[in-house]
Design a protein around this nucleic acid. Sequence first.
DNA 1: GCCATATAATTAGATTATCTAACTATATTT
DNA 2: AAATATAGTTAGATAATCTAATTATATGGC
Lengths: 184, 184
Amino acid sequence: MGRKTSKDQPTDQRLPRLGVEPYLQLMGRTAAPETDAKSAHMGLVMLWLSDHILDVMDEELASYGITESKLDLLLLLILHQDKGMITPSAIAARLGIRRASATALLDWLEKRQWIAREQSDQDRRMIHVSITPEGKELVERLLPAFWRTCASLVEVLEPEERAVFEKVLLKLNDTIEKRLDAGR
Amino acid sequence: MGRKTSKDQPTDQRLPRLGVEPYLQLMGRTAAPETDAKSAHMGLVMLWLSDHILDVMDEELASYGITESKLDLLLLLILHQDKGMITPSAIAARLGIRRASATALLDWLEKRQWIAREQSDQDRRMIHVSITPEGKELVERLLPAFWRTCASLVEVLEPEERAVFEKVLLKLNDTIEKRLDAGR
DNA sequence: GCCATATAATTAGATTATCTAACTATATTT
DNA sequence: AAATATAGTTAGATAATCTAATTATATGGC
């Protein structure tokens, strides 16, 4: 966060990242013979692209004073509203983090009055979490820009490219989600 | 890191993430009218895919006791070897981080004997950083798996899909790199 | 040649997002 | 009623960043 305002010493210069070529050369000597070079190259670019995409989104969200993890939590609360009350445990389970981590996020959001905690009457160990009007206001204010930014990621593509890309994207995402789920 | 060995209370269960549908519905009511819904949807999936790709790579690297940031640094040292000595400042500039952050990474790597620092004779303010034989050994051991993992990211794609996808990938990566460079 | 300024690296101190383990309070089961 | 399970939190850790300040060394202007 705050990469925009960073200054360090006034003379700090940003050297260009190494291009892909040196990496490909290194791959030539270090990849196992059965690894397809073209695929590995594409995967490497995907890895870089992934980093860049998260950087872009972090910067966008930083201008609203929030981060992706915390926005995820707020969106979960909004999307869950009609389905009744939600507890910190359920939030953690849905976000794929530990309950202790959820507690930390909730503390931060509560301090800013964007969420509220209320003890359950049925089971006094449980807490019901909800988004406040202020929290909703923030999300409503930020979402248009969020969708704009999402859209901007693929806007350079030509119509022909988009059709294939869309299919590929969903396929890759499904595959990797299954792969990650498998390891749990 | 270490998501694999996580346990918490034995009863902790991982609920499935919400699917894309609720998000699309939310988008319907919250996106600016001029935002293209299809693009925004694709961008959202790209954002998720990006998270997943980094998760996969983090897990892979964790099994070698290293992280992406630190591997980046080691690879930079390897790729820089023929071009003479490199300093912490130059490393920071190439990685796009502050010198203080580079110092922290170098401390960690030095403690494990994977890099070495040596004071320059010409300019005694400067440090020359190099990768040690042990560091090289680690990288040589890990890179085959790294390329394997890269390749595995796109392995589900059909040959026809790959051709288009490759072009699109490079285009998206170029575009976003320019965009990020612009904001500096 | 000396002093002001610039630069290189580090240190100090902070934030964010995670984690595991231990703890407290409350339910549930036997 | 005692043992066990569950919900939430707290305590303490690690990792990757940041800014600001500090220390040491060079350099450029006079």
